[in-house]
Write a protein that binds this DNA or RNA. Structure first.
Lengths: 336, 336
DNA sequence: CTGGCCATTGACAACGCTGTCACGGCCAGG
DNA sequence: CCTGGCCGTGACAGCGTTGTCAATGGCCAG
């Protein structure tokens, strides 16, 4: 036989109508036991698997959800997607990933594409600033926004205390005696990073420390530029005694640069954990932004909406904590 | 208007038949310029996006491919998927991920599910030993096997020199004077790891070193068990002077255990790179198993098959190299 | 014995799209 | 003038599934 078996094949083998096959496959009550058995046998013999494309077309709601993120190569999002996929598998739902590469226009295209795939729901870590298009294209399908947001009304969201957490990180460094604290992060287009930068500024302001623009490095959200920026900071006439890295990927670069420059005496706090952060010398103090609870909360919201719950938009804000491990507790080296 | 626009909506607005809309949308030649313009205007006005579920049902070939891997949380696979998704996006194809969690039965279920999604092709990093089911369920759809295989005939494959690479790693340690070299890895069910273990044994045999079962640690493919196994190795009366870790995730655990046990004097080589491996003290010597060329090669094969090429099954084996960084070049500490 | 009810089952349409085929109009060649 | 072919276009079927509705038959109360 060529091609996969259809309900017609099963029906023919079992000697029933296609509708009865459909009923058995979908677990309907109104099927007699002998009939059910015949159908099940036929299903097993033919290795019948429901064509979920036809199912999706017919029912209008697919058995996949879409997840829109920066890049799956980012370990934060990788872990996020992993948890989501695990939970969705239990519901028999597949996960379609679409990466934006941090381009707002590409985000829009990806969301439209996913909508065209009849996904049942969308989980988006938004990039751009204008998200009005989402409503146009998703047409009432459940949407949960993750890790970014704060300015988009009417959607369920899950985010972390970016500003508060960043302030806590910098407060921690200030409490350790630091006054020249560098900021490493992406440019302000990314809401999350913008918030963390505000937290950084909050902390400096609260301590009466003047902002030194030289210590504020943007456009370095990836390891390489972050490493380069860190190297430049080290070469300053009056270098920082501490670095606050606003995302884990940047932290990879910062750590590399500090180690390669043999300047592990410089204090550092990273917003977001990363592999081996606790095995370095010194171990890296982090702001704990664990993707797992974020993903869990997002999936809970998504499943609730997919079950048809019609409550108000829910906004979940997860707390974050400073996890001291060593690098954030280094004292400032001798002042010049 | 409720729901997304369909060809009927566009046809009505443009004053043409649905077929003509279809022709315009699909870039058929035989449409007059004025008609095309009217249709395009209507498409833009209604924000029409082709329902790819209906398209997929009708044409029988979807616009998504499926990728079956252990876990997207594994950075090797995350990077792999990232490259694949990037390439596929250029072709207008979505990526459906399905993780097996290293369970053979789950692998089978996932492959069947993806087949039911009408995916156009499948890229699988196989787990189990019996893959005869693949042919049943994929029914002639292009399939490329990645990173595992060697025993499955008739499929395109991309793999790395597992055995040769592992032997090179252990040779490297032996050349450095080591004779008590531990092996850390998953159990032998995983073809890749089994091959690497053979490479380890090859190297020992070639050097005339007797295998010490105490130094052969299996069932530790994840960081935690690998760390536990390493700790146990360190506690042996006659501990190893070097460790060969057969996969990057295990290496994370090994590194953690070595650092926490303050035994960074123990030499180590990791099969597969990981983040910060070059920033540790000492930096970790690796066997370079870069996911990018693997993904590129796999995508090339997949696209060729999707274009209908009918050549013989192609088996690509990518070479691997030892990248010395320090940890693999440590001399054995004083013999007891 | 009969009417009515319920459980079981099936015929048919429809989801949105594209492939097939047919139709009308135009032009070139006879 | 007629004919044949090509171009632009549309009517219709059908991909595999489920929802709607009706038909069948068995069983029980009257």
């Amino acid at each position: 036989m060529s091609g996969r078996a259809t309900v017609y094949d099963v029906a023919r083998v079992a000697g029933v109508s296609i509708k009865t096959v459909s009923r058995v496959v979908n677990g309907s009550e109104h099927v007699s036991e002998p009939t059910r058995q015949r159908v099940l046998t036929a299903v097993a013999d033919l290795a019948y698997v429901r064509n979920s494309v036809a199912y999706s077309l017919r029912t209008g709601s697919g058995d996949a959800i879409g997840v829109v993120i920066d890049s799956i190569a980012d370990s934060f999002f990788a872990k996020l997607v992993s948890v989501i996929e695990e939970r969705m598998l239990a519901e028999g739902i597949s996960v379609l990933i679409a990466s934006t590469g941090r381009s707002g226009s590409r985000e829009r295209g990806q969301v439209a594409r996913l909508a065209g795939q009849n996904v049942r729901a969308l989980l988006i870590a938004p990039i751009g600033n204008d998200h009005s298009y989402i409503a146009d294209v998703t047409q009432g399908m459940p949407v949960v926004l993750v890790d970014r947001d704060w300015e988009i009304a009417g959607y369920d969201t899950v985010l972390v205390q970016d500003r508060v957490g960043a302030k806590a990180a910098v407060d921690h460094l200030i409490a350790g005696g630091h006054r020249r604290i560098a900021f490493i992060g992406d440019n302000g287009d990314l809401p999350t990073i913008a918030e963390r930068r505000l937290g950084y500024l909050d902390a400096l302001a609260a301590a009466g420390i003047e902002v030194d623009e030289l210590l504020l490095r943007t456009a370095c959200g990836e390891p390489e530029p972050a490493a380069a920026a860190t190297a430049e900071l080290l070469a300053l006439p009056d270098p920082p005694t501490a670095v606050f890295s606003s995302n884990p990927r940047a932290s990879l670069g910062v750590v590399r640069a500090l180690h390669q420059g043999l300047r592990t005496d410089i204090a550092m706090v990273s917003f977001g954990d990363f592999a081996l952060a606790d095995s370095l010398e010194p171990a890296v103090t982090i702001i704990d932004q664990d993707p797992t609870p974020i993903a869990e909360a997002a999936v809970d919201l998504l499943l609730a909406r997919m079950r048809g719950e019609q409550s108000e938009a829910t906004n979940i804000v997860l707390p974050v904590n400073v996890v001291p491990r060593g690098s954030g507790e280094l004292a400032p080296w001798n002042r010049s």
